[in-house]
């Protein structure tokens, strides 16, 4: 479980996160939604330690990040799997090497064991016959699968994804969403997904947090979000008159 308490972050005097409080539950897909610039990525970067918040606490399984010493932080990093928006695969390594990297770097396992585990996760994400291909030789959807496989290979306790289906066609986006959901259940990870894809929200959103202009505007489940009377959520879910009409029809039928 990850808890965020009164998180505040500023850039050059401009507040981008205001008093954010949230709890991300274990074994669930926790979605953080909001418009571009609402602070989703900054919040995720604070969670993984790439940015430091001025105020507030981030608590991983009852241990605040600020109270962790160097070795605890190092151990925590081994338990975090991260899927970046642009996949962030290492260009100089092929698919298998990308996935093996963290195991080779941080475990004392034998090479054969590492290769076996890498192939296991490659098979799990449905990436057969791509082991020796380089990132520039595979499609966007395959890159996301490699990124998920790389995040999974160390059996993480926390899986963090920054817009995992951005730039993908709707069909592949659904496949990636479902893969993350399956992985969450299989590995019982605390999964946090940043997204502004409504399909993801309705497909896999077990717990949803809506950020608006840097503050938490709303929190609930996917069944609650459609009937929410919050104006900002309404504007986010159905920005055009046509979508608003569809949404209203859907709610009326319900």
């Amino acid at each position: 479980m990850i808890e965020i308490k009164n998180l505040n972050k500023q850039f050059d005097g401009v507040t981008v996160l205001k008093d954010i409080c949230a709890t991300f539950e274990k074994g669930k897909t926790n979605l953080v939604i909001g418009q571009s610039g609402s602070g989703k990525t900054v919040m995720l970067k604070c969670l993984i330690g790439l940015m430091e918040a001025e105020e507030g606490d981030i608590i991983f399984d009852n241990i605040p990040l600020r109270q962790m010493d160097y070795s605890q932080k190092f151990m925590l990093k081994q338990q975090i799997g991260m899927v970046f928006q642009g996949s962030a695969l290492f260009d100089s390594m092929n698919v298998e090497e990308n996935i093996r990297f963290s195991m080779e770097m941080f475990t004392k396992k034998h090479k054969d064991e590492i290769i076996e585990r890498a192939n296991q996760v490659i098979k799990r994400v449905g990436l057969l016959n791509a082991n020796k291909k380089y990132p520039n030789e595979i499609s966007g959807g395959m890159k996301k699968r490699v990124a998920i496989a790389r995040a999974m290979v160390m059996n993480p306790k926390y899986l963090l994804c920054d817009e995992p289906n951005s730039g993908l066609d709707p069909k592949t986006a659904v496949l990636i969403d479902n893969l993350i959901k399956e992985v969450t259940e299989e590995y019982n990870t605390t999964t946090v997904i940043n997204t502004h894809d409504m399909n993801s929200v309705l497909e896999i959103g077990e717990k949803i947090i809506f950020l608006f202009n840097g503050h938490k505007e709303w929190e609930g489940t996917k069944s609650e979000i459609l009937t929410s009377d919050n104006e900002n959520i309404d504007a986010f879910l159905a920005p055009s008159p046509y979508l608003r009409k569809i949404k209203n029809n859907f709610i009326n039928k319900k």
Binding site: L50, F84, F90, D91, M105
Partner: peptide, 17 residues
């Protein structure tokens, strides 16, 4: 620089490298 803009350095940092 290319590794920086494509978040590869961030990925390494998150891993604890």
């Amino acid at each position: 620089g290319a590794m920086r803009v494509t978040e590869q350095i961030d990925a390494l940092q998150v891993m604890g490298v």
